[in-house]
Structures are given as structure tokens and as C-alpha cells.
Design a protein around this nucleic acid. Structure first.
Length: 525
RNA sequence: GUCUCCAUCGUCUAGUGGUUAGGACAUCAGGUUUUCAUCCUGGUAACAUGGGUUCAACUCCCGUUGGAGAUGCCA
């Protein structure tokens, strides 16, 4: 059977890098396996889901080149009746029950199945005992076993779990006397006829069962059933909860591999049981570690710079994003880092994914982006620069020929497109002066005098890079200065800044008129 | 509190019993360059901790510490 994976975001605002990385990994996996990559939009949260957010999401996917199969995507809101039908099936089978605790109406809870041995991965661990706090009664019902556990300090700690966690349950007092034995009473408890409250219990004795699944990223994962609780699948207002909606949709879309964030590990055990109870094959799971911020914490709404759109605005390439994010928590096993999509797809495998959270390194990504920019075809590069320049009033209506020359000159040193802001001096009449640099270059008054001398030499030359160089050399030689001593002062006077491309080329590009005008203006400051 | 998972340079990582613990970004020094960047050369920098197992442990086991997630109507 061919692989089918999905990316299932909730469109509630901006697209987050942690989210989109899950999409990238799903996409890489699907393409590597020559399977299908599906998109499902989990828009059931009407409060927070907006059409704009959906649009943003689709734009981001397209920008990154994450093409999905089977269009249009599945909108979860169209599936609600299916979710509710599945809930009804669970209710009819006795795998779910209604409960009124909490909200106004009745919620529906999925019941960890008593006959859990039918669920793939469930196995008996062996006899187990749990000490309970004697002052809190043990309550046994179809909703589970409720008790207060004994903490390491001897205090009462909230405990309890689904009934299915306690096979062969016996409740004992401090003298090991059996207060309750579930043998022969299973049916009565399960169908709600028997609710038992037991005072003065000291321990629970039962056969422990656990569920294990093989995580494609993390390896074997195990959870004892007595640590699991029944889970709400329909809110008291009648709306389906994520757990059931997600599982039902994955069944509908025939998803074979679920690759998602680390935060779902705990849910997986229950989801597997839901698949099983609904008579569907259980998909394979892989859980990706989170991406954390510089403080090592998961990105929160406050970390505004973690949105994909922001990176685009700053002038990162889609190729850079895909490449860098793929490398965050995964590596090909050799020392390649800059990899094309084809190479990534070819090399990708889930078992090489990291188990630990990764911190985004913006500098490393910037460096990678610089590599991509440096090898961009010049025409395309120029077009991109043009659009990033267009946000400035001085960056509009630039003569294409001139822009092309500037881009050619500057391409090798641009790291991200937003930095074209620093090219301002190419496009304005008078540059902004970096006063600190000026002070540094003209610390010595003689430099200014020398520059004045140079001005006249430049005035008489034909202003090609070679001629400019010759003029400078002639001047320094005449004044007995070191060769090149005037380069930086000249740059400061004409461009206002201390860094840039070669000054001869820069001046040639600026042209004689503008250069001389700026020099003149500089002396009049 | 309890449960699940995790732990190699500042960061991303290679490494699956025997390695001078490798690479990349960042950083530092030197070289090239008229400056900056590129480029080249070199340097600083890591196995959280304590016990085992073993001839031998970064690697296996246990404890501790630290981190993350979960813990009934968020997804």
C-alpha cells in the first residue's frame, strides 16, 4: 500500500515555523516514498479560524513549494457529521459514554476499552500494586478507578485512571484484607449498575497492561493503561473535539503515516485505541521534536519572529527555509548541508530525525541564504531586489539598466534581500552619513586636504574604474601617502558608509556627475 | 505531585564498546583583497553528574540533576 501522509494545521493566524516544519517533513517523507501528501484544514474552531488565515496558509505552502495532492484540501468543518456518526458508533458499541461533569450539558467520553487486548500493541506487563492514601475513598465505576495516590512525601496526590487499566483489580486494606474484588462483577461495573466506594483502602492490586507502539522517530513508546484516562470526544455543547475529529479524518483520508509534533505523543496511545475501536487499521506514527526559541523555550505568541511570513519579508528564499528547516532536527548522515529539494527528498528518512528539541540559529540560516543568493541567476536576483527596494520611496522607479549594474556589483555580498536597504546611497542624491565612520576616516585634518587634492584629479579623469584608480594612485604618490590611504575616506565622503563593493567600481557606477557633486557637498558640510 | 520522553562544542549536528570525539554556523588569529564581504590557513570550544557492567564506555544498565510534553471538554 502506498504511503499517504497529511499536514493538518488549524488556520488560526500566522503560520508558525514549528508547524511548517511538520509540513516539510511530511512532504519530504511522502515524496521520498512516492506517496501522497494531503492537506487537511482543521477549521472547526470557529472562534479562531479565519478565511484570511486559510489564505495565508495556502500562500505559505505555495511559496515554499510544498505541493499537496488531491485538491481541494479537506476542510474539517465539512466532516462534522462523520465525526458525530463515529461517536454514535462508539456509544453503541459501549466504547464511549456520556457524562455531565464540568460544562452545562453532557459531554461524551471515549472509554479506554476494557477488552484492550484487542487493540494492537496492548500487552500484559504483570502484577502491580499501587499504594493509596487511606483517607480518600477509592471509587470504582465505569468511569474508572478514582483514588488518591501516595506521593513520595506521604501526601495525597491526585491519581486515578480508566477502568481498563486495572484488570483483575483487588482493593486491599493495610492488613492485606481484600475489600473489593472485581472478579465476577466486571459486567456490572462496566454497564454502570455497580459503583463502589471503598473507605480505608491501602493499596490496589491488579494486572498491569500497557500499550506500546513503534514511533518512526522515537522508537518504542510505552504507556501503562492505569495511567491513562478516558478522554472527552464531544464537548457538552455537542461539538466534536480534536481527538475524534482527527482520528475520523485520518480514517477518511486513508492516512497511513502520521508525522506530527512531539506534543502529541501522549495522545497517540488513545488515538490508536480509537482507530481500533472504529475498526480501522492503525496508522504508523512519527513524532518530531519541537523547535524552541533562543531561550530554549517553545515559541509562544510573544516570539513574533517565528512566523514564516516574517522570514519571507526579511528576504529569505523559500529554498533556504526548506533546506534549513529540514536540517533542523534531521541530517542526511553525511556532511552535506546545502541541499536541493531533490537531494533532500532522496536522502530523507524519519529514523534520522532528532529526538531532542532544536533551537533555531538565525545566523546559520542567514549564511545559508547568502549561499543561495550568491548563486542565483542575475536576472532573477535583480527582479527580487527590485521588489524589496520598492518598499522605500527612494527605491522606486529605478532605471533597469542601472539597477542591473548595482545588483551585479553587490550580489556576492547580500545575505538577505531586506539588506538592500543598505544600498540606499546608490539611489539618492545625498547619502546618509555614518558620522562615526566619518570621524574615524577624517581624524587627521591632512586627510581632508588630500581628498581635496584628489577631487581635482578625479575631475580631470574619464571616470572608469581604472582611471579612478590611477587618479587615486597619482594623488597619494604626489602627497607621499601610502597607497590606498585615500580609498576609505573617499568612500566615506561619497557613499556615507564604511563598507561596500570596491570603491573604484562603486564610483564608476555612481557616475562622474553624482560623485563630484557629493564630494563637493561633503566639503561644504 | 504523577506519568511519558530527552541530554555531544555557544548553536545545528556526526558518532550504535576501542576515534587525536568529525563537520557546519558563530567566534578568534593570520593570509588574499583598495574597504567590507567572498576566498584560503590555523586556533579556542563539547560527551550534565555519580555509580555500575566490561580488558575497554560518549556509546550498555541504574541513580541524581537538568529540560520538554502530558495530566477530562486547546489543538
Amino acid at each position: 500500500m502506498s504511503v499517504r501522509v497529511r499536514f493538518a494545521p488549524s488556520p488560526t493566524g500566522q503560520v508558525h515555523i514549528g508547524n511548517i516544519r511538520a509540513a516539510i517533513f511530511n512532504w519530504l517523507f511522502a515524496r521520498h516514498e512516492k506517496g501522497s501528501f494531503l492537506l487537511r484544514i482543521e477549521d472547526t474552531d470557529l472562534e479562531r479560524s479565519t478565511p484570511e488565515a486559510i489564505k495565508t496558509l495556502l500562500e505559505v505552502m505555495e511559496w515554499l513549494g510544498l505541493d499537496f495532492d488531491e485538491k481541494p484540501p479537506l476542510y474539517q468543518t465539512s466532516q462534522v457529521s462523520k465525526h458525530l456518526a463515529a461517536v454514535q458508533q462508539l456509544l453503541d458499541q459501549g466504547d464511549a459514554y456520556k457524562d455531565a461533569k464540568g460544562g452545562g450539558g453532557e459531554a461524551v467520553l471515549f472509554k479506554i476499552p476494557w477488552h484492550a487486548e484487542n487493540v494492537p500493541g496492548v500487552h500484559e506487563v504483570g502484577p502491580a500494586e499501587i499504594a493509596v492514601h487511606p483517607e480518600t475513598p477509592v471509587v470504582i465505576s465505569y468511569k474508572g478507578v478514582d483514588y488518591a495516590a501516595l506521593s513520595s512525601k506521604g501526601k495525597a496526590a491526585p491519581g486515578g485512571g480508566a477502568l481498563a487499566g486495572f484488570k483483575d483489580l483487588q482493593v486491599l486494606d493495610a492488613e492485606d484484607k481484600v475489600l473489593f474484588d472485581i472478579h465476577g462483577q466486571e459486567e456490572a461495573v462496566l454497564n454502570g449498575e455497580l459503583v463502589k466506594t471503598i473507605e480505608g483502602a491501602a493499596k490496589l492490586r491488579f494486572t498491569r497492561r500497557a500499550i506500546t507502539y513503534h514511533d518512526l522517530v522515537k522508537g518504542d513508546m510505552t504507556k501503562p493503561l492505569d495511567g491513562m484516562k478516558d478522554v472527552v470526544i464531544v464537548r457538552s455543547d455537542g461539538s466534536p473535539v480534536f481527538h475524534i475529529a482527527n482520528v475520523v479524518d485520518d480514517i477518511t483520508q486513508k492516512v497511513t503515516h502520521i508525522i506530527r509534533g512531539d506534543d502529541h505523543v501522549e495522545n497517540t496511545f488513545r488515538h490508536i485505541m480509537m482507530f481500533s475501536c472504529l475498526g480501522a487499521p492503525v496508522p504508523q506514527y512519527g513524532h518530531l521534536p519541537m523547535i524552541v526559541n533562543a531561550a530554549g523555550k517553545p515559541y509562544s505568541k510573544r516570539d513574533g519572529d517565528a512566523f514564516v511570513g516574517d522570514f519571507k519579508d526579511k528576504g529569505f528564499l523559500a529554498d533556504t527555509m526548506v533546506n534549513y528547516l529540514a536540517l533542523l532536527g534531521w541530517n542526511p548522515g553525511d556532511e552535506r548541508e546545502k541541499m536541493s529539494r531533490e537531494e533532500l527528498i532522496e536522502a530523507f528518512s524519519l529514523d534520522r530525525c532528532q529526538h531532542t528539541p532544536a533551537q533555531m540559529d538565525i545566523q546559520k540560516m542567514t549564511n545559508l541564504n547568502g549561499q543561495y543568493l550568491a548563486e542565483m541567476e542575475i536576472g532573477k536576483f535583480t527582479e527580487m531586489c527590485k521588489s524589496y527596494l520598492a518598499v522605500y520611496d527612494w527605491g522606486q522607479n529605478i532605471k533597469p539598466e542601472y539597477l542591473a549594474k548595482v545588483c551585479t556589483l553587490m550580489q556576492s555580498r547580500l545575505k538577505k534581500f531586506a539588506d538592500v536597504e543598505q544600498w540606499k546611497y546608490f539611489f539618492v542624491e545625498t547619502p546618509d552619513y555614518d558620522e562615526k565612520n566619518l570621524a574615524k576616516q577624517f581624524k587627521d585634518d591632512s586627510v581632508k586636504a588630500a581628498l581635496k587634492e584628489l577631487e581635482s584629479a578625479l575631475a580631470g579623469c574619464d571616470f572608469t574604474a581604472a582611471a579612478i584608480e590611477a587618479a587615486i594612485h597619482a594623488t597619494t604618490e604626489k602627497l607621499g601617502m601610502g597607497q590606498g590611504k585615500l580609498n576609505q575616506p573617499l568612500r566615506a565622503a561619497v557613499t556615507g558608509v564604511g563598507v561596500g563593493a570596491g570603491i573604484y567600481e562603486t564610483l564608476e557606477l555612481l557616475g562622474k556627475d553624482l560623485s563630484m557633486k557629493r564630494l563637493d557637498a561633503f566639503f561644504k558640510r
